[in-house]
């Protein structure tokens, strides 16, 4: 298998995630798009681990998975708090800091 097969698939997933972060209005969907991007990075790390024949890439992928879990937990807590105070999870309406 070519290394580029993995890298280009991962680049595609990452760019799809960027589109989601920029174009989505709902906060939960933005968090899902961030998960897509983190997952693309994991595919890169594991592919390079197999390419170089070292285990470090897989360990880094495990760390990224852990950080992703922590990020989703805190992110959803923040979304819940915004929903409780504003009765919306629409990011376009959360603009109190705009001045």
């Amino acid at each position: 298998m070519g290394l580029n097969q993995f890298l280009i698939l991962s680049a595609f997933l990452f760019c799809t995630g960027i589109y989601g972060v920029l174009a989505r209005k709902n906060a939960v969907l933005v968090l899902m798009s961030i998960e897509l991007m983190l997952n693309a990075v994991n595919i890169n790390l594991v592919a390079f681990s197999a390419f170089r024949g070292t285990v470090s890439g897989q360990v880094f992928a495990l760390f990224v998975i852990t950080i992703a879990a922590a990020e989703v937990g805190v992110g959803l807590a923040i979304v819940l708090l915004i929903y409780r105070n504003e009765r919306t999870s629409d990011l376009d309406e959360v603009d109190q800091l705009k001045g």
């Binding site: 993995f6 939960v28 998975i65 852990t66 992703a68 879990a69 937990g73 959803l76 999870s89």
Partner: peptide, 29 residues
Amino acid sequence: VAAEFVAWVQVLIYIGAIVILFLFGIMLT
């Protein structure tokens, strides 16, 4: 690419935990 441990962690943490958290977030908001 024979990274079996990472694959099962992916299934357990991502599909088992994170997606469930997302579904809770969708329902609660």
